[in-house]
Design a protein around this nucleic acid. Structure first.
Length: 271
DNA sequence: GTCCATGTTCTTTA
DNA sequence: CTAAAGAACATGGA
């Protein structure tokens, strides 16, 4: 569910309700979602105050008043919401923190458990996470894409190459840039990379404006779904007419992921 | 029962 | 050796 626009929306809706609040009670129902394994998260968070919530790639990064940091990754089905303590506790809720003042609860739910809670602490450990796509310059993107011969689709899914894109927004960005998903990353022309860089930013900005895409699980911190799924040009539209040329959208499997594109609008470079 | 799913990481293959 | 492809993880919905 969560790519950059969804994670950004969660962060934006979380900020006014959680920043400055103290974690008065912390109830970790599934210790195995915490990394490193065996880390005593309840003890580390109890009575701490959250000063800042931010997004880095698909991570929701929390900074405590102590300067210590930790983050939540939503995986595929994760939800991070602020709810009334009276609200029913949904199945697969793994973490509940009571916020003070106010008594509202910060809850993390993740049926598939591909997500998790990651303690960083205060160490300045190097992260391999790639640069943020918004604010990325074309020359920087070109340099990174030149380092691999993989299909551009696979390259853009690599969080170490560029952080925050997932299956939906890679397909949408490639369509907007009119680049075939199987095109070799290192063979893209300068002009194509420039177009791709613009397409990624435009796609992400539009998606954020529409509060993300809700296909199944995704909701923001207030429990509200997004609306960008209605604007998808190719994702999950196999067989439907291209919004540009009316030809049918094609679906292929690439790197184990379903990939959607318009074979007419996204021609492969002749070689 | 089958297939598929917004993600990441470990293993296998080339 | 490295890069890339494939499998695995866990649950639920169509």
């Amino acid at each position: 569910m969560p790519e950059l626009p969804e994670v950004q929306t969660v962060v934006s809706t979380l900020q006014p309700r959680v920043e400055g609040k103290r974690l008065a009670r912390v109830d970790l129902k599934r210790p195995d979602i915490v990394r490193p394994r065996g880390f005593d998260l309840e003890r580390a968070l109890r009575d701490r105050t959250i000063s800042v919530i931010a997004r880095r790639g698909k991570r929701i990064l929390f900074t405590l008043e102590t300067g210590e940091q930790w983050y939540i990754h939503l995986g595929m089905t994760g939800r991070l919401t602020v709810e009334s303590p009276a609200a029913e506790i949904a199945k697969h809720t793994h973490f509940i923190a009571t916020l003070a003042p106010g008594g509202q609860e910060l809850r993390f739910r993740d049926p598939r458990r591909f997500g998790g809670i990651f303690w960083i602490g205060t160490e300045q450990t190097e992260s391999n996470l790639g640069p943020e796509p918004l604010g990325l310059r074309p020359a920087q993107l070109a340099k990174r894409l030149a380092q691999t011969r993989r299909a551009i689709k696979s390259a853009l899914l690599d969080q170490n190459l560029i952080a925050g894109l997932g299956n939906i927004y890679v397909d949408e960005s490639l369509f907007l840039a009119r680049i075939h998903p199987l095109a070799a990353s290192n063979e893209l022309k300068t002009e194509q990379v420039a177009r791709l860089n613009r397409a990624i930013k435009q796609t992400l900005r539009r998606a954020i404006r529409h509060r993300g895409s809700t296909l199944r699980d995704y909701v923001d911190a207030n429990g509200a779904g997004g609306g960008f799924q209605l604007k998808h040009r190719v994702y999950d539209r196999a067989g439907e007419p291209c919004r540009t040329c009316r030809g049918p959208i094609e679906r292929i499997v690439l790197g184990g992921r379903s990939t959607h594109f318009c074979p007419r609008c996204q021609r492969r470079a002749k070689r």
